[in-house]
Structure formats: structure tokens, C-alpha cells
Nucleic acid binder design. Structure first.
Length: 581
RNA sequence: GCACCCAUAGCUCAGCUGGAUAGAGCGCUGCCCUCCGAAGGCAGAGGCCUCAGGUUCGAAUCCUGAUGGGUGCACCA
């Protein structure tokens, strides 16, 4: 149920009827006709721009169209008034029954209220986190994880068939480095002095991995050369790291559907197949790239390479896919991976990267465009930096020393709910401040708390009602006499509830889950406002002493707020608290 | 040098894909608890939406350019 799209349908139908009556020419495009909440509530319940959008193509004056449209709309039982305003806006007032219908719909549909068919069951793959399996996840990964997960839930809510996926970069040189680092920890476990050379991973999270190696191999590896243990240790270490990463993700409430191994692409002909596919399209060639303008790398020399003509699909320069030693560049398996996603039948792909991978977007889009002949879309969402603070002081971390702040540190300290919500209070491409002290604060300054508090208040008043012997099941409330609602303060909340389906829809189109967080804050704010007005105006209290019928109608509204908050928090992966004392 | 992202209240940020008088929070000033949770609410002050052009009925929003920040720029992932 989406009141805005219902009314828009009504407007479109009416416009079509006007065409039938010769009041409007045929062949008009109604795509830009919008029905939206007016900026100023005094203007009415909804406003449409139809007359202004159509004036030019129809060759008529906007006000004339608006007048005619207003006359017809006013004849509809759902519309109580239609007034032309400004340059040609049409302000509509709706029959109160429609607003009451919103509350009824929320109670009837529950957590499904606002679900849409925007996605039409299309299959979308959301790839996120995809951190190298060389250590625990840090705060930056945490933001990507939260964002990707909420985005996936949002897309599911608007009707997509969503797959959550993690690409394990277990095929490159960094895994060799990991294996060598672990070997030193293994030596350490055997009582020798570890030699953590420059370039190895110094973090002590590898100590238990070394110990586990000793469990498995005893001291048998000590006198062997790297060629004898490197491969085994690569697997052993990446498995250990992925276990760690999976556990961390779970602590944050993130569960992937697919973990896709880069290594599985090698030696199976899959990279070759992907490249062949590009070659068939004439997009692979041998050539020499121009040196980059401006800053010239020290060791630059002209070099003939195997290149992907990504410029044919919007990239700035063509990209090497093969190194001079004959091995693949990192780009080649990425091409093959996306080729695999395409061949698994996804209609749309989304990659969530850290902002430091921004330079990678165009070539990846070029690859997907080329591989799918433009049939599969790729949207790349970049998550900006997280700046850590503690009590207003910048919180420094040094990756070199291996003491960076991990996802686990954050979740253990502030909890998954707070972490998730806070990371969604900023647009993905805006930098985010994360102050350990402030995000745990339980006051209105903290949006997580503020939203959860609204939910808890509803739960509280419902408990009170139950104690007073008032039946408050959703079915009962849905059948309550909602005509008893109607005060401005109540209508404001109902209007906000009615926006939920619309909000979800636009958030889903933009792939922007943060909008859900902002909406929830606004809804909570309207609710708190109504709640407090009950202090001065007893008639606005939800629980009306000695008047069960009115109490139930007000409870219906309160309960609707809780249902929508709960559904919204569900998309964000945050628990709706029932009590916060 | 090139590409991408960003620029909105003193501070931190929204702004519903082009709509009416640009919104929150923090901070500042002043109010509201014999009252369903004051961990809340109300009111006030605070803006040439960085600048200059363009598109049109209409621009914070779209386009171009400038300025100021961030990020990334061949056989590393």
C-alpha cells in the first residue's frame, strides 16, 4: 500500500480521461508527473506538478490544465479539495478515510508495509567487504560491511532477489606474504626468535595461527625450504584468516550468501575464458601505453603489454591484463570474477569499495559493459573514510605497528546495533566521524538511541494499555474506530507513516540505505513530539482513561509507528529495543 | 597533468533524481515534569546553498568553467 502512488495513479488516469475528452492532446509522456508531499503542510496533503510538466508538450497554459484537472479530481470521492496554486501546482486534500487507511494498512501488513515490486524479482548481486584475507577487519571494512549489508536488505525490501557476496583475494602475492609471516609465528611457536622482516605482516593476530601450525606439523617444517611449505601455509593461513573474518562479520550481524575465491579462478581456464570473450569482441591487443602525464614514475619505460581496450567502454586509458613475466595482472581475475557473476544470471551488479579504490571504477564498469554487451549494469558504491575519535580527541592508529582498530574492537565496545546505525547516518561517499564516547551516549544527541527510544515508548504504552485491560492486538487495533484520530499532531505522524513506502522506493532506486536512517529519525521525532504534547493536552495521550475505544484508535497509531520503526531498523540490521530503562 | 568524489547555518550534516518561504542535530537564549518513560518536548536567533555563466515556466539539485579540499593514477592487490 502506497498512498502516494495510489493518488498518482488517480492523477494519471484522470489525465488520460482528459485526453479522451479532447482536453489534452494524445501522445503525452506522463513519466515526469509527480505526486509528492508539499513542503508546507498548509498547502494540503499532496501536490502534483502535472500541469507544469505537461504545459509545454501540450501547448497549453499550466493554469488552464491545472483548473481542468482540479475540476475532475474534485469529483473523485477520495479528493476533498483540489486547488491551483502558484505557477500551476495542484494542491490536493484527501479524504480522512485514506489517511486512516494508512494506519490500517500498517497494522494489516506489519513488517511488509512499504515493500514494493520495484525490483520485479530481478536478481542483483551485492559484493561488499571483500577484504584481503591477511588480517582482521578494521573500521574501514566495518563501514563497507554495514553499508553493503543494509543496501542488500533494502534491495530485498523493494523486491529484488539479492545475493550477498564476498570476494576473497586469495590469489595474489599478498597471500605469499601472509604465509611467510605465519611461518615466522610458527618458528616462534617452536621456541625460535621470529624474524618479521620489512613487508611482512607484524600483527600478533597471527600468533595463534603459528601455534596451530605447530599443532599440525610439529617441528617438521623448521628445516625445510620455502618451496616445501609455501603452498600449504597459504591455504592454512587464508583459511584461518577467513575464519576470523567470518566470525567478525557475524558479530556485526553480517552473513554472506557466497564467499567467492579468487584462487578458484586460476588453473581452471576461467580467466582465459573471460579474456577470450573479450578477445572475440576485438577488445584485447598488444600495445604500449603512454606514460602518465605529470608525475613521471622513476622506473618508467615503454613496454609492450597485453591490453584490454577499456576505452571502448568509457575508461580513460586501456588497461594491462598481463604482466611482462606472462602472469595475469590483478585486473584479469577481477574481470573473470565479474564475468562469472554475469554468467550466473544476475541482472544487476553492485560493488561496494573503499574510496581509495575510486580509480578502479571505470575499468570495472568497462569490463562488465564489454562482457555483458551492456546488458548487465554495474553500480559501484564507494565508502569514504571513517575518522575515529575518543572524547573529542583524534584516535590514531598505526597499521605498520599492527595495532589498528579492528571491527571487533568497535563491536565489542559499542555493540553491533550502535555501530551499524551510526555508520548509516552519513551518506556513503561522505567521510564519517566515529567517536567512541559519543556513539554510546544514551541521549537524544544519539540518533540510534533516539529512534530506539521511540520504539520503546510505544512498547511501554502498549504494556500500560494491557494492564488497563484494553485489548491491543494488531487485528483489534486495525478494526478500531480510526475516525477518532484527526488532531493535527496525530495527522502529522500519519502523514510521515504514509511516506515510508515512498521513501523506501527512492532509497532503493538510489542504492542509498542512509535515507532509511534519516527517515526513521524524522518519524521518531514526530512521534516524540506528539507524545510530549500529551503533557499539556490530555486529549492527545494515547491512553485515555475510561475510554477504551478512543484508546484503541490512538494505540493503533502508536503501534503503527513501532511497526514501521521496527521494519526500518530491520533493513539497517538494528534491533528495535522494547525497553531501555 | 588527467580522472572520480566533495563544497548548504558558527560546527556536523540532510535535502525525496528540477518545484512553492532551503531543513535537522550540536552549540547559544528562554520555557515545559501533581502528566502514558523529561534518556523527552516547545519557542527564538543563525543562510548571497563557494563563485561565474548556461539550460527553462522554475536550479541547492542538471550542463560548462573557475576556486578550494579529498582520493586514485603503467608489469602492487
Amino acid at each position: 500500500m502506497n498512498l502516494f502512488s495510489d493518488i498518482r495513479d488517480l492523477v494519471i488516469d484522470t489525465l488520460a480521461a482528459m485526453q479522451g475528452a479532447g482536453e489534452l492532446p494524445e501522445g503525452l509522456d506522463f513519466a515526469n508527473v509527480a505526486v509528492e508531499p508539499p513542503r508546507d503542510p498548509a498547502h494540503g496533503d499532496m501536490a502534483t506538478n502535472a500541469a507544469m510538466v505537461l504545459a509545454k508538450p501540450a501547448g497549453l497554459k499550466p493554469r488552464d490544465i491545472a483548473e481542468a484537472l482540479a475540476t475532475r479530481l474534485a469529483a473523485d470521492a477520495r479528493i476533498t479539495s483540489a486547488e491551483v496554486a502558484g505557477p500551476g501546482f495542484l494542491n490536493l486534500r484527501l479524504d480522512a478515510g485514506l489517511w486512516q487507511g494508512v494506519v490500517r494498512a500498517v497494522l494489516a501488513e506489519g513488517a511488509d508495509f512499504g515493500r514494493s515490486t520495484l525490483g520485479a524479482g530481478k536478481r542483483v548481486n551485492v559484493e561488499y567487504v571483500s577484504a584481503n584475507p591477511t588480517g582482521p577487519l578494521h573500521v574501514g571494512h566495518t563501514r563497507g560491511a554495514v553499508f553493503g549489508d543494509a543496501l542488500a536488505s533494502l534491495l530485498d525490501f523493494v523486491g529484488y532477489d539479492v545475493t550477498r557476496e564476498y570476494y576473497i583475494n586469495d590469489g595474489g602475492a599478498q597471500v605469499d606474504t601472509l604465509a611467510r609471516s605465519v611461518f615466522e609465528r610458527y618458528r616462534e611457536a617452536c621456541g625460535l626468535e621470529p624474524e618479521i622482516a620489512e613487508g611482512l605482516y607484524p600483527g600478533d593476530y597471527l600468533v595463534p595461527v603459528g601455534a596451530a601450525l605447530k599443532e599440525k606439523y610439529g617441528e617438521s617444517l623448521l628445516d625445510k625450504g620455502e618451496e616445501d611449505w609455501l603452498e600449504d601455509l597459504r591455504d592454512f593461513a587464508t583459511d584461518a584468516m577467513m575464519d576470523l573474518i567470518r566470525t567478525d562479520l557475524k558479530a556485526l550481524g553480517v552473513e554472506m550468501d557466497v564467499f567467492y575465491s579468487e584462487k578458484s579462478l586460476y588453473g581452471t581456464g576461467r580467466i582465459e575464458a573471460a579474456i577470450e570473450s573479450l578477445r572475440d569482441k576485438g577488445l584485447i591487443y598488444r600495445g604500449t601505453l603512454e606514460p602518465p602525464k605529470g608525475k613521471m614514475p622513476e622506473d618508467w619505460e615503454p613496454r609492450e603489454q597485453t591490453l584490454f581496450r577499456s576505452t571502448a567502454h568509457g575508461d580513460d586509458v586501456d588497461r594491462p591484463i598481463m604482466k611482462s613475466d606472462g602472469g595475469w595482472t590483478y585486473f584479469a581475475p577481477d574481470i573473470a570474477y565479474h564475468y562469472d557473476k554475469i554468467s550466473r544470471g544476475f541482472d544487476a551488479l553492485i560493488d561496494v569499495f573503499g574510496a581509495d579504490h575510486g580509480g578502479y571504477v571505470k575499468r570495472m564498469k568497462a569490463a562488465v559493459s564489454a562482457l555483458s554487451d551492456g546488458k548487465v549494469s554495474l553500480d559501484v558504491k564507494l565508502t569514504q573514510l571513517v575518522k575515529l575519535w575518543k572524547n573529542g580527541e583524534p584516535f590514531k592508529m598505526s597499521k605498520r605497528a599492527g595495532n589498528f582498530v579492528t571491527l571487533r574492537d568497535v563491536v565489542d565496545q559499542v555493540g553491533a546495533d550502535v555501530t551499524r546505525f551510526h555508520m548509516l547516518t552519513r551518506k556513503n561517499d561522505a567521510p564519517l566521524d566515529f567517536d567512541f564516547a559519543r556513539v554510546m551516549e544514551q541521549s537524544k544527541d544519539n540518533p540510534v538511541f533516539y529512534v530506539q527510544y521511540a520504539h520503546a515508548r510505544v512498547c511501554s504504552v502498549l504494556r500500560k494499555a494491557a494492564e488497563a485491560g484494553i485489548e491491543c492486538g494488531d487485528a483489534t487495533l486495525g478494526a478500531a474506530d480510526l475516525g477518532r484520530l484527526g488532531h493535527d499532531a496525530e495527522m502529522t505522524v500519519i502523514r510521515k507513516l504514509a511516506e515510508w513506502p515512498r521513501l523506501v522506493d527512492t532509497a532503493g532506486r538510489a542504492n542509498e540505505p542512509h535515507r532509511v536512517a534519516f527517515y526513521l529519525y524524522e518519524l521518531a521525532s514526530e512521534f516524540h513530539s506528539l507524545w510530549n504534547r500529551g503533557n499539556d493536552e490530555p486529549g492527545l495521550r494515547f491512553l485515555q482513561e475510561g475510554d477504551p475505544a478512543t484508546s484503541q484508535s490512538k494505540m493503533a497509531l502508536a503501534r503503527s509507528v513501532a511497526v514501521v520503526i521496527s521494519a526500518g531498523l530491520g533493513i539497517l540490521g538494528v534491533t528495535p529495543a522494547e525497553e531501555m530503562r
